[in-house]
Design a protein around this nucleic acid. Sequence first.
DNA 1: TCATCTCGTTAACTTAAGTTAAGAAAAGAC
DNA 2: GTCTTTTCTTAACTTAAGTTAACGAGATGA
Lengths: 191, 191
Amino acid sequence: MQNLLFDFISKYISLTEEEKSTLLSLNLFHSVKKGTILLKEGQKSNESYFVLKGCIRSYYNIDGEEKTTAFYTEMEALVPPSVLSKTPSPYYVSCIEDCILTISNTDMEEEINRKFPKFETMCRMMSEELLAKERIDFDAFKTSSPEQRYLNLLQVRPDLIQRVPQHQLASYLGIKPQSLSRLRARILQKN
Amino acid sequence: MQNLLFDFISKYISLTEEEKSTLLSLNLFHSVKKGTILLKEGQKSNESYFVLKGCIRSYYNIDGEEKTTAFYTEMEALVPPSVLSKTPSPYYVSCIEDCILTISNTDMEEEINRKFPKFETMCRMMSEELLAKERIDFDAFKTSSPEQRYLNLLQVRPDLIQRVPQHQLASYLGIKPQSLSRLRARILQKN
DNA sequence: TCATCTCGTTAACTTAAGTTAAGAAAAGAC
DNA sequence: GTCTTTTCTTAACTTAAGTTAACGAGATGA
């Protein structure tokens, strides 16, 4: 598991053995059971998550209904807005599967940034990259229909459709579960 | 104009006079006429934009139709994905109004980061902040109807509705211009 | 000035998503 | 294993967005 993390980091910066052991001394790694709620709406947590194995989701409670807006799988990071703005979290985060995560908090990140300035370089690069990706994804969402979005998801993240419950996928695609069912039936008929 | 930029920067880091004059020596400031295309689809530009005055928009050409996906107004930054990934730009960027922008390129940014490490800290903070904001906006888009999106826009960016053509607003809201017209008429009737 | 093009609106019709409800299948609890 | 709950699907009906077309206002340009 540690190697998964170090391999990922090595895409941005190179770490010395000393830096690696400093990271390991922080006790970042956690096993979390399916169904665990990592963050609740309203909470002022300062924890960030990086998925080594498994899948976590963010969801809102709107008029008593769960609206899933994002999934984070292997080698993806979630820094909730509450971490940066110190405001209550607008959404929940929970584990869809048994997960192995790194969980860090603001203090730990500040400490690492102080000890190893290149760690900040990595964070900058990752944030810039993720921001660009998020904007492109948002653009694609705006400019396509629910059916196109589903077909696109089949192309770019086929695993998600297998491992995630349909009703959560539906709100991720911006529609109701019944509409997703219908849309899938429509696609099957066409072929 | 320079003060607008320095005031903005001062929200993240404090600059010495020396640092300010180094920034000024880079010739960042540009006046750009309404209608100017700053970036074309397919181009491998490495320029980033920061809006001091005016409004720029990003748009895609999909089946011969312009699909506007984002507007950047005063004190907002656009770092196109092509800058980071060195791939052709997926979209166009053009000026909706006469603008005053700072235009920088990768080389300039690297030079500044090398001279003033705290500049990188600012970039990291801005990227993290913008990523969090972008995700929240995307979530809100997914979980609401076109009508709710329009009403929300009226609340949070009423200026946009005034200064931007309707048909560009429509694709920004993920619908057709005719649907936006109808939706507005529907809202008026309700009151 | 006149002609042209763009933009916003309206209308009629089509298509697809939302809503409500019901039933079957699968998962989870005891 | 049975009971309960959740999840997925289907169907009928409603609502709203997409599509096509037409018109008027305003801007643009020769």
